[in-house]
């Protein structure tokens, strides 16, 4: 399980989505790392990957909408970080198209996805919670 309680920012909407996102990434990594014939797993990997990519985009949209709603001062910077991440995902989508869903490439993508998500939620997103608390809003 990748999720840790310390990742909570104290805003239920965001925390629930983060927990879900960590669960999806965790499931994805488990299907990628599971022993067995790679060829037999590619359909499942492809399906999980597509689902997760969509979920990431939806989550970013919700999180950005929430930031606008609370007039988060670092909204633009945060949006830029999301945009860079989307660009990274898109670059891999192109590589999957061109090079195929090889085990090596999918694993490489998995490593990047996991570290990015942990760092983003453990560092950048914590600032959103801190802002909400400063404003006297919801939070721990």
């Amino acid at each position: 399980m990748m999720w840790k309680e310390k990742y909570r920012i104290g805003v239920d909407l965001i925390d629930d989505q983060h927990r879900e996102l960590f669960q999806r990434v965790s499931d994805f990594l488990q299907s990628v790392q599971q022993k067995g014939d790679w060829e037999q797993k590619t359909d499942k990997v492809k399906e999980t990957l597509e689902f997760m990519q969509n979920y990431v985009v939806e989550h970013f949209e919700d999180e950005e909408a929430y930031q606008r709603q609370i007039k988060y001062p670092e909204y633009e910077e945060h949006k830029e970080i999301h945009a860079k991440f989307r660009a990274m995902i898109n670059q891999y989508a192109v590589r999957f198209e061109e090079e195929g869903f090889t085990q090596e490439l999918v694993q490489e993508f998995g490593g990047k996805l996991m570290t990015w998500l942990i760092m983003h939620v453990a560092a950048s997103d914590q600032k959103i919670g801190a802002w909400v608390r400063e404003q006297g809003g919801e939070g721990q």
Binding site: Q107, E108, G110, G111, T115
Partner: peptide, 8 residues
């Protein structure tokens, strides 16, 4: 493997 190397 590539997953570990990429994360590192």
């Amino acid at each position: 493997d590539s997953f570990v190397a990429s994360a590192l």
